[in-house]
C-alpha cells in the first residue's frame, strides 16, 4: 500500500548490522559503550574537519560491512548523507569505499530517509546489501551554519550541540532474528514560522508531531503498540513542545516517548538543550535502539527523525525554518 507518503514493505527487509563511530566529546554520551569506534581527536587524525568527517563515515561503513562478513565489493548501494555543503564528506567517503552511491539530504532526518530508501531498494529485489546512514561533525557544521569554533558568542539554553558521530546500517533482505523494517511514513515539510537557528528543537517539533499523527492514522496503529517512539534530535525544549503538540492531538504521551537529542549527552548542562545533527539520530538508532531490539527488550519501535531544512543563506535572508520528519517502524520477531 502506498498512499501520500505511507509505505508498507512486503518483504520486511532487515538491518543485518550497524556501524557507529564518534568523536572525542561523544565519550560523555551514556551510549558510548555501544559505539563501535571512538576517535581521540575531532578530525580523526585527518588534516581537515571535512576529511576527518569522511574518514569517520568510511570507518562506520567498513565496520557495518565487516559485521556481516562482507567487503565493499559485496554491497549494492551506499545511501548516506551529512550536513556540510554539497555533502562533500559523504562524497569523499563514497569515493574511497567505491560502493554505488547516492547522496541523500534531509538535514538531521537523513538517518531515516536513507533507511527507508534502502528498504525500498531491498524490498523491490534490487539490493542484497545496502548501506544507509548519516553523520555530522561538530566543527564542520558549526563553522558553516553559525560562527567560527573559537568565536565567543553566547548560546542560549535552547541551543543544541551538533554531534561528531556517524551511524550506518547494513540493510539486507529479511533475516530471522534481526530487526526488520515494516513500514514507514515520508514526512511533509512543516513550517510554523520559527526563525531562531539557536532553537531548532522548537522549529522541528511540529514536523515530528505531524509525522507521528500521519503514521498512526495511515498505518492504523496506536501508541500502545510500540515499546518505544523515539524522535531524532528535538532536544529538551523541542521534546517538551512535541509532547505538548502530540497530547493536544489527543495522543496519550507515555514513558515510551524518547528523544535521541535529549538523551545523547546525558544531563550535562554544557551541551544546553542536548545534541543535534544528522549523526545524533543515526548513532542512537543504530546503537541504543538496535541493541535493545536484538536483546528483545524492544519488540516494536517507531523512529521519527527530524530535520531542520535551513541553510545559512536562507536564515540570513530572513526566511523561516522549514522542517521535516520521516518515520520508520521496526519490529523484532
Amino acid at each position: 500500500m502506498v498512499a501520500r507518503g505511507l509505505l508498507t514493505f512486503k518483504t520486511n527487509p532487515s538491518i543485518a548490522s550497524t556501524g557507529v563511530t564518534a568523536g572525542p566529546l561523544e565519550k560523555k554520551s551514556p551510549f558510548v559503550s555501544l559505539f563501535d569506534k571512538m576517535y581521540d581527536e575531532e578530525q580523526s587524525g585527518a588534516g581537515t574537519n571535512e576529511q576527518g568527517h569522511a574518514k569517520m563515515m568510511e570507518d562506520a561503513c567498513m565496520i557495518a560491512l565487516s559485521k556481516v562478513d562482507s567487503v565493499p565489493e559485496d554491497a549494492d548501494f551506499l545511501l548516506i548523507g551529512d550536513l556540510v555543503n554539497q555533502m562533500t564528506p559523504s562524497n569523499f567517503c563514497a569515493a574511497t569505499v567505491g560502493i554505488p552511491y547516492m547522496g541523500m539530504f534531509s538535514a538531521c532526518a537523513t538517518s531515516v530517509s536513507t533507511l527507508i530508501t534502502a528498504a525500498l531498494l531491498t524490498d523491490s529485489g534490487f539490493s542484497k546489501i545496502a548501506i544507509a546512514g548519516a553523520g555530522s561533525q561538530h566543527n564542520a557544521v558549526e563553522r558553516q551554519f553559525r560562527y567560527p569554533i573559537e568565536y565567543g558568542s553566547q548560546k542560549p539554553e535552547t541551543s543544541q550541540w551538533t554531534v561528531t558521530a556517524v551511524g550506518v546500517a547494513a540493510v539486507t533482505p529479511n533475516k530471522k532474528g534481526m530487526p526488520s523494517i515494516v513500514c514507514a511514513t515520508i514526512g511533509s515539510v512543516v513550517d510554523l514560522g520559527m526563525t531562531d537557528p539557536l532553537n531548532m528543537g522548537a522549529a522541528m517539533a511540529p514536523a515530528a508531531a505531524d509525522t507521528l499523527q500521519r503514521h498512526l492514522d495511515g498505518h492504523g496503529t496506536k501508541i500502545t503498540d510500540y515499546d518505544c517512539i523515539m524522535t531524532g534530535d528535538l532536544g529538551k525544549t523541542g521534546f517538551e513542545l512535541y509532547k505538548t503538540l502530540a497530547s493536544n492531538n489527543g495522543i496519550d504521551v507515555t514513558e515510551n516517548f524518547r528523544d535521541a537529542g535529549e538523551e545523547f549527552y546525558g544531563e550535562d548542562p554544557s551541551f544546553f538543550a542536548g545534541a543535534s545533527g544528522a549523526g545524533c539520530s543515526s548513532t542512537v538508532y543504530f546503537s541504543e535502539i538496535y541493541a535493545k531490539m536484538l536483546q528483545g527488550e524492544y519488540k516494536r519501535v517507531l523512529l521519527i527523525a527530524t530535520g531542520a531544512l535551513l541553510s545559512p543563506l536562507s536564515f540570513q535572508q530572513g526566511d523561516t525554518i522549514p522542517c521535516i520528519a520521516h518515520a520508520v517502524e521496526l519490529t523484532m520477531k
Binding site: P156, G193, M194, T237, L241
Partner: peptide, 17 residues
C-alpha cells in the same frame, strides 16, 4: 495549529532568557 498559536506555545515552553 497556526503560526501565532504555536509561537505562543513555544514562548511558554522554551526556557526563559
Amino acid at each position: 495549529m497556526n503560526e501565532k498559536k504555536y509561537a505562543a506555545l513555544e514562548k511558554e515552553i522554551s526556557p526563559k532568557t
